[in-house]
Structure formats: C-alpha cells, structure tokens
C-alpha cells in the first residue's frame, strides 16, 4: 500500500504501517549519522537536551552536500547513508528521544527493530545513492545544529520535506524486519551456491 504522511500530524498512523508499504513524507526531517547519535546520547547523560524536539520529526541517516547561498543553505544531494552503523546507538536514541520514524538504507538489526516495536515506530529505506533526486524533496533548510563541532556531513540538519519518497517500510511496528528475513534467505542460498562450487 502507498501512503502520504504529514509529520508530525500523522504520527499516530505510523502504527498501522506494514513491512513493504511505500510512504511519502511531508514535514520536518533531521539528519543524524554516527557522531550525531553519539552526541545525542552524551547530551542525555549530561542531563542536557537537544535544541529541537526530535520526536516530532523523522530521523534521517544522511550526510548531505549543502551549499551556502547568501544566508540560506541549499541541499544539493541528500541520499541515505548506511544505517547499520547506527545500530550501535539506535535502540537508546529511540527510547530516550521518542523517535518513531527512521529513514536510511541497507537495513537495521534486531535491537533497533525491538526498540521500534516498543514505541510502535518504523524504519524505512530510500534508494541508496539517489542523492540528487532525494535533495529535490528538501526544498528548505530550516536550521543546522553542531555544524562547527561536527562538520557538515555529521551535523544535524533540519530539512523541510515535501513528498520525500518513495520510502519502503523495512521494519514495521509489529517488529517485522526485512533485513533479518532476507539475511536468513541468503544464508540458505549461500549453502546452495557452495554446493555448486564444490561440484565444479
């Protein structure tokens, strides 16, 4: 099924999504890669908070190419980065910050799926490498945080998105995880391929 979602207004519709659904998101998206995830956990430990409310936004695994034109930032390319690196932190980030929508590429592991199930959230993927196309839907840079400390790929960028997608739901709120299913299937195929090699 295909759904167009407005974030944060449609946050409660997330719980009905199923693995394989295609969604388009309009609303606020914030980027966070490895360093930003670490920083989010450090801030929490110190009892400090983020300068924005991430629970009302989409967490996007992305380090964009951005260009400064006058006082404004323009997004040139903003496809997803490999999400599995964020498995190290995501379980805690989801729980602490109430994140319900994560977008990235490549799939995520069991711990992240479990945390998403608990919060009734999803992980969806955008086509890896399609950076120029993705940038089209980010028509405005709302703000940027920690740019000096983290540098532009790792900084937390807040984008205003219109119809960001197609995004394919890869982990649904029931905890179904395409990454896990496909990996199990591939392990089976590996055995078959090894048989072919042994017989050659």
């Amino acid at each position: 099924m295909m759904y167009k979602l407005k974030i944060p207004e449609d946050m409660d519709k997330i719980q009905n999504l199923k693995m394989g659904d295609v969604i388009y998101i309009t609303g606020k998206v914030f980027t966070a890669r490895d360093e930003a995830h670490q920083l989010m956990l450090e801030l929490h430990e110190k009892g400090e908070s983020l300068p924005f409310d991430p629970s009302k936004m989409v967490l996007y695994h992305c380090g964009p190419v951005v260009k400064k034109e006058g006082d404004e930032w323009k997004v040139l390319a903003a496809g997803p980065t490999t999400s599995s690196r964020m498995d190290l932190f995501e379980k805690d980030v989801i729980k602490i910050y109430g994140i319900r929508i994560i977008v990235g590429k490549g799939g995520m592991g069991d711990n992240t799926a479990e945390a998403l199930k608990n919060i009734k959230g999803i992980y969806a993927t955008y086509t890896g490498g399609a950076g120029a196309l993705a940038a089209k839907s980010f028509h405005k840079v709302e703000n940027v945080y920690f740019l000096d400390e983290l540098g532009s790929p790792e900084a937390m960028w807040i984008f205003d998105a219109i119809d960001f997608g197609p995004l394919i739901v890869s982990i649904d709120p029931q905890g179904n995880n395409w990454n896990k299913i496909s990996r199990d299937e591939m392990e089976k195929r590996k055995k078959e391929i090894f048989k072919i090699i042994d017989q050659s």
């Binding site: 040139l76 903003a78 490498g129």
Partner: peptide
C-alpha cells in the same frame, strides 16, 4: 532517474 537528473543539473549523483 537520479543519474539523468544529476547530469542535467550538474549535481553530485550521490551525497557521498
């Protein structure tokens, strides 16, 4: 689509 669009607009194909 992305490859064609990036070439036309002279944008990076991928942000990485």
């Amino acid at each position: 689509d992305n490859v064609k669009y990036a070439k036309e607009k002279k944008l990076p194909i991928c942000q990485d």
